[in-house]
Write a protein that binds this DNA or RNA. Structure first.
Length: 550
RNA sequence: UGGGGUGUCGCCAAGCGGUAAGGCACGGGAUUUUGAUUCCCGCAUUCGUAGGUUCAAAUCCUGCCACCCCAGCCA
C-alpha cells in the first residue's frame, strides 16, 4: 500500500515532531485513527482518508484504530458499522483495533464533571434558539449566558439531574466556559452535552445525555493515545477547541495533533449522503450496494478492484487545496488495473447473424484468457462458421475510417479467420437481419502461412451453435448532471441508469469464477471506455440460458 | 464585514532561495488478431496580482484580488 504521493506535508509535521522528541514518552509510536460515524455506507470519498491514515500507519510502523464515532443515537445503527467494517476489509486494510466512541461514555461523563469542578463548564438553561441568538455573528461578539456563573455545586447537581433523566430534551445543555467574544465561533461556549431521550444502538437506554462531537472526538483520541488526528479541512476552525478540550481534561503529553487535508471531490460524481440515502430510501436503486452507487460496495459490485481505488488516491495525492479531480482519472486507474487482471471473454449484446457461406464443419480455436497478464493462459472456443456479431460492428454505409465490416470489406473474427462480406439481408424495417461472408482458410489465427488477405479491424463474435443466450444488465453509474441538485434529481438519475439486454456469450463466461471482473470485449464501441460513455465495466450478466439453439 | 484556510499547465499535484517533477486529459508517431494495451515524442520562459529584498524568488517581505470554511443541542 502506497502512501499517497503528496502526503508530504503530513509527513513533514510528523518528522519534525519525531525529531523534536515529542513522542519519546510513547516510544515514538505513531497512532492514527479512522473515525466514521456509522450513519451511512462508506463511499469513494472515504477511501482517501483511509489511504492517508493507513499510509501513515504503514510508513511509521504505527497503529490505526477504526473507531465508530457514534455519539448521535438518532442516526446510527449496526447495519452501518457492519458495512463500514466490510468495506475497510474489502479494501484490504488491516486496522489494529475496532473501537466505539460510545464505549467511552462513562469516561466522557467523568471528564465532564471534572470540567464543572474546574470551572470549565456549566449547565445552561437557554433554549437552542436562545443560544443561537446570543452567539453573536461573524463580526459581533456573543452575549454571555445568564447561567454562565452558576456555582460548581449547582452545576454538578443540575448535570447529574440531566443524566438522571429528569429534564426533557432541549431543556438544558452542558456548555464549555471559554470566550463568548472569540472571533472563532466554535469557542463561544460550545455545547458539550445535550439531552436526548433516544435509545442508543449499543448502549440502549443507559443514557439520555449524549456528548457532542467537539467534546467526544478529542477525548476519544486522547484516550486511545492517538498521536495524529487527520481530518478534513472543515475542521480547521475546530482545532483550537480540540486542543482546549484535551488540555482541560488533563491528559498527559503528548497531546494528539489534528492535521487537516482537503477531502476528495470527483467531477460528476454524486457523493452527497443526502441524495444517496434518498435513492435508497425511495427505491430508485436496490440498495446501498447497487452497482450504480458510488459506495464502496456499489463499486465492488460494479467490478471495480480495490487496488484501482488505492492507486487513484495515490495518484491524486493529498494537499490542502480545494480541488475536484476529473472522473477520467478514476476511470484510468480502473482501466489500468483491470487491464492486467481481468480475463477477457466475447459476448454480443445486439446480435446479428453472420453466416460464412463457404465453411462447413466445426473446429476448436484458441483464445488467450488475458493478453496482458503475462500468463499466456488459453481457453478453447468452438467455431462452426455461423456466428453472431454485434450490430454496431457492421455498417450498411460505412463512415469514414470505419475499420469493421461492410459489404465488400474485410474484417477478422477475433481468434478465427478473416472474412469478406459479400451480401446482407434486411427485414421489413430495413434492419440488417443476416450477413453473408466468405472466409479465407489461410488466415486462420496463428497460421504461419502468408496471406495476401488483410483486415483493418477485428471484431468479436459468439458461435451460433455453442453460444449461450445471455441476459445482460447494463448500468449507467449515477452521475451528477447540470441541474444538480434539484428536487427531481433522484427520478432523473434513475432513468436509463439500468437496462436489460439479451445477447449471446461464449460458454466460457458461464464457467467463470464468481465475482471475478470481466472486461467484455467491445470492439470498436469506444475509443476508450469511461464511466461517462457507459463503456467502463457497466455490464453484468444477469442470467445465462444454455443451448438456446437446442 | 471578524476569524480560519487556499491560490503552480484544461484537472489533480511536487517544489521550502539557485533558475518549473509526476499523473490525468490532450496532440503527433510506431507496433498491435480488443479502434484497447504497449511504445516513443510534444504539451507552464512561468507559478492569483502589484511592488520590494537578493547576484539569484514559485519559494522571503508588503499591499491588493479571488475562492473555500465557521453563527447545529450534526459529525
Amino acid at each position: 500500500m502506497n502512501l499517497p504521493e503528496a502526503t508530504n506535508f503530513i509527513e513533514q509535521y510528523i518528522n519534525e515532531e519525531l525529531e523534536q522528541g515529542k513522542f519519546e514518552s510513547v516510544g515514538n509510536q505513531i497512532c492514527v485513527r479512522f473515525p466514521p460515524e456509522p450513519n451511512g455506507y462508506l463511499h469513494i470519498g472515504h477511501v482517501k482518508a483511509l489511504c492517508i491514515n493507513f499510509g501513515v500507519k504503514e510508513k511509521y510502523h504505527g497503529k490505526l484504530n477504526l473507531r465508530m464515532d457514534d455519539t448521535n443515537p438518532a442516526k446510527e445503527d449496526y447495519e452501518y458499522v457492519n458495512s463500514i467494517v466490510d468495506a475497510v476489509k474489502w479494501l484490504g486494510f488491516e486496522y489494529d483495533n475496532l473501537f466505539f466512541a460510545s464505549d467511552y461514555y462513562d469516561k466522557l461523563y467523568e471528564i465532564a464533571e471534572k470540567y464543572i469542578t474546574d470551572g470549565n463548564a456549566y449547565v445552561c438553561d437557554l433554549s437552542a434558539e436562545e443560544i443561537t441568538a446570543t452567539r453573536g455573528t461573524l463580526t459581533q461578539p456573543g452575549v454571555e449566558s445568564p447561567y454562565r456563573n452558576r456555582s460548581v455545586e449547582e452545576n454538578l447537581k443540575l448535570f447529574r439531574e440531566m443524566k438522571a433523566g429528569i429534564y426533557p430534551d432541549g431543556a438544558k445543555v452542558l456548555r464549555a466556559k471559554i470566550d463568548m467574544s472569540s472571533p472563532n465561533l466554535n469557542m463561544r461556549d460550545p455545547v458539550l452535552y445535550r439531552i436526548a431521550h433516544v435509545p442508543h444502538y449499543r448502549q440502549g437506554d443507559k443514557w439520555c445525555i449524549y456528548p457532542m462531537y467537539d467534546f467526544a472526538h478529542p477525548i476519544s483520541d486522547a484516550i486511545e493515545g492517538i498521536t495524529h488526528s487527520l481530518c478534513s479541512l472543515e475542521f480547521e476552525n475546530h482545532r483550537p477547541l480540540y486542543d482546549w478540550v484535551i488540555d482541560k481534561a488533563g491528559f498527559p503529553a503528548p497531546r494528539p495533533r489534528q492535521i487537516e487535508f482537503a477531502r476528495l471531490n470527483i467531477t460528476n460524481m454524486l457523493m452527497s449522503k443526502r441524495y444517496l440515502k434518498k435513492l435508497v430510501d425511495e427505491g430508485f436503486v436496490r440498495g446501498w450496494d447497487d452497482p450504480r452507487m458510488p459506495t464502496l460496495m456499489g463499486l465492488k459490485n460494479r467490478g471495480v478492484p480495490p487496488e484501482a481505488l488505492k492507486k487513484f488516491c495515490a495518484d491524486v495525492g493529498v494537499a490542502k487545496n480545494y480541488g475536484v479531480v476529473s472522473l477520467a482519472q478514476l476511470d484510468e486507474c480502473i482501466r489500468d488495473c483491470l487491464n492486467t487482471t481481468a480475463e477477457r471473454a466475447m459476448g454480443v449484446i445486439d446480435a446479428v447473424k453472420l453466416t460464412i457461406t463457404n465453411y462447413s464443419g466445426e473446429e476448436e480455436l484458441e483464445f488467450e484468457k488475458n493478453p496482458t497478464d503475462g500468463s499466456g493462459a488459453m481457453r478453447n472456443v468452438k467455431f462452426t462458421g455461423s456466428v453472431y456479431i454485434d450490430r454496431d460492428d457492421f455498417a450498411i454505409e460505412p463512415p469514414h475510417k470505419f475499420k469493421r465490416l461492410y459489404k465488400g470489406g474485410f474484417v477478422r473474427l477475433k481468434s478465427a479467420y478473416i472474412v469478406r462480406c459479400d451480401d446482407f439481408a434486411t427485414d421489413e424495417d430495413g434492419k440488417v437481419s443476416e450477413i453473408f461472408c466468405t472466409y479465407f482458410p489461410e488466415t486462420r489465427s496463428g497460421s504461419t502461412v502468408k496471406s495476401e488477405i488483410k483486415a483493418k479491424g477485428v471484431i468479436q463474435w459468439v458461435d451460433a451453435k455453442y453460444g449461450v443466450k445471455t441476459e445482460y444488465r447494463q448500468y449507467q453509474p449515477l452521475l451528477k448532471d447540470e441541474q444538480y441538485p434539484d428536487q427531481d434529481y433522484a427520478e432523473r438519475l434513475n432513468e436509463n441508469s439500468e437496462r436489460i439486454f439479451f445477447g449471446y456469450a461464449e460458454p466460457y463466461i458461464a464457467e467463470s469464477e464468481e465475482g471475478k471482473p470481466f472486461q467484455l470485449m467491445r470492439t470498436g464501441y469506444y475509443k476508450k471506455m469511461t464511466s461517462e460513455n457507459g463503456g467502463l465495466i457497466l455490464s453484468e450478466i444477469v442470467s445465462l440460458k444454455d443451448n438456446f439453439n437446442k
